[in-house]
């Protein structure tokens, strides 16, 4: 296991590329979803408020 992690002495370099990759992939998903949420948040105030309707199932 320790041998696997050390990557023949290049462990720091290999594992930091793995870490950076995870960060960028996660960033993309989070940023994309936030983009949609913000679009919806900006639009909502323009919608007529329908306070009479209750959300019953």
């Amino acid at each position: 296991m320790a041998e696997f992690l050390s990557m023949g002495g290049n462990g720091v370099f290999v594992w930091s590329t793995v870490g950076l990759t995870i960060v960028v992939l996660a960033f993309n998903v989070i940023a994309a979803r936030r983009h949609v949420r913000q679009a919806m948040k900006q639009l909502r105030p323009h919608e007529p408020v329908d306070s009479n309707r209750s959300t019953s199932t």
Partner: peptide
């Protein structure tokens, strides 16, 4: 996948006046 999510948000903003966006917001 990420592009599709982003474009969804983008078209919502661009089409904010149209009826279908109102339906989606509800």
């Amino acid at each position: 996948a990420v592009l599709a999510i982003r474009v969804s948000g983008e078209v919502l903003t661009r089409e904010s006046r149209s009826r279908w966006v109102g339906e989606i917001l509800r």
